[in-house]
Every structure is written in structure tokens, then in C-alpha cells.
Amino acid sequence: MSIPITLIDLLPSTSLDAGEVFCGSLNASLSAEGLKNLKKVVKRQANWEVVISSEHNACLPFARWLAEKNHLPLKSYPELAEMNFGTWEGQTPASIMEQNPTILARWWRNPACLVPPEGESFAHFQGRISALWERFMVEHKGKRVVLVAQPGVIRLIIMQVLGMPSRNFFSLAIESGTISQIRVMHDEAGVWASLVTYGCHA
């Protein structure tokens, strides 16, 4: 009997019309350049069976377009949201550094060691994404899936698959117009996920 294999393509939604600001709960859309990059990277892809998306405005409209274009079912999840950055929302890193030169540097070194003011802790963010990731591997077992989400979510999924500690969270560059793939093998011993490709351009 063949071993079921699930392939999950991770498609980051970056380059927002709000600019280079913290955007977790902020209702920002994709920029024209960001949309162009996403369409370019999926141009030669046509073998997905389901589209999964965050419900954020930077992700869902594109995911809906992709699903309709390829006649695929679309499933969106509020839990797939980016981390909530609290009072940092809508601000650039530079402006935060001007207000407090040390707080952002500490967070970049290890986001688990500091919570953005009035924001979401890294532990909570990691917990909800990890729980949803486990669901995906069960619900879409043996399928080819594309997942559209904001950069932090993509980064966290890859970090979990590789078993990386939180201090290496920002070691993963998540760039516009790229796609990464996770392969999940299901056998009697358990579920085994591995990173097949990372940050590939069209």
C-alpha cells in the first residue's frame, strides 16, 4: 500500500498598500506590485486541489481569485491571521526605534521574550498556528494544497517543520513573489513533515 503524501505550497502575501509597516490586525490590502508578484508565482501552477487562506484583506481576495480561476474549493480560517502587533500596528520599524531604541531590537533577537505593547504574545501566536497546522495535515491528507498567508505565519510554519527555536524566527527571509513547499508523509509510525523547497521564485 502506498504511503499518502500531502504537498502544501506556502504563498506569502507581502508588499502592502500601507507600506513597510507592522500589519497584523491592520486592514491593509496588497499593493499592485504585491498582487503582480503573487500572480506571477502561481502562473505555471495548476495542480492544486484546494486553496487555504487567512481571512485578512491582504490574503483572501487573492486566494478567492486563485480558487475561482482554477475551479478549486476555498477554505479560509480566522486563526490563520498574522500576529497582532498591538500599538505597533501601522507603524514602521524605524518609527518604533525612534520611540524606544531597545524594545524592537530585543523583539527581533527573540520574539518569544517580549510582547508588543497591547499585542499578542509569540507563545499564543505559535500555539494557534501550530494547532491549525496539525488540522491541515489531517483534513487534507494526500492532497496538493496552496496556503496563502502573511509572512509571519509562513515563517512560523517553516520554523515548526524544521524544529527551529524562536530566537531563529527572523533568520527566515520571506520575500514577495516566492513560494515554499512542505511535504508531509503519513504512515503507521506517524506524520512526517519536511521542507522541500524554500523561497523559490517563478
Rank of each mutant, 00 (worst) to 15 (best):
G119N: 06
T197R: 12
S2D: 13
A28Y: 04
S171K: 08
N110V: 03
V115N: 10
A173I: 05
F169S: 05
E120Y: 04
W192K: 11
P4N: 11
A131C: 14
P117D: 06
H71V: 04
K143W: 00
L38C: 14
S25H: 10
Q45T: 07
L26M: 14
L11A: 07
I157W: 13
E120M: 06
S76L: 03
S31Y: 11
S15T: 09
V115T: 13
E89M: 10
K36C: 14
N100R: 13
A67E: 10
G86M: 12
M83A: 14
S53D: 00
A149I: 00
Q126P: 00
I103V: 15
S130I: 06
C200L: 12
V42H: 02
S15Y: 07
W133K: 00
A123C: 05
S194A: 11
R167W: 13
D187T: 11
V50Q: 02
F170C: 08
D17K: 09
E98T: 13
N100D: 15
W48S: 00
H71Q: 12
L10M: 15
S2M: 07
M83Y: 01
V161C: 11
L156M: 07
V161A: 12
A149C: 13
V42W: 02
H71G: 00
L66I: 00
L26A: 15
E33M: 08
P4V: 12
P73D: 05
S2W: 07
M97P: 01
V145Y: 01
G34C: 07
C23F: 02
K141L: 12
F122P: 03
V184F: 07
L74F: 07
A81I: 00
P116F: 11
R109I: 03
R64V: 03
L26Q: 15
G142N: 09
V153P: 00
W88D: 04
S171I: 01
F170Q: 03
R144M: 10
G152S: 10
W48I: 00
A63Y: 01
S121M: 07
P116H: 09
P93C: 09
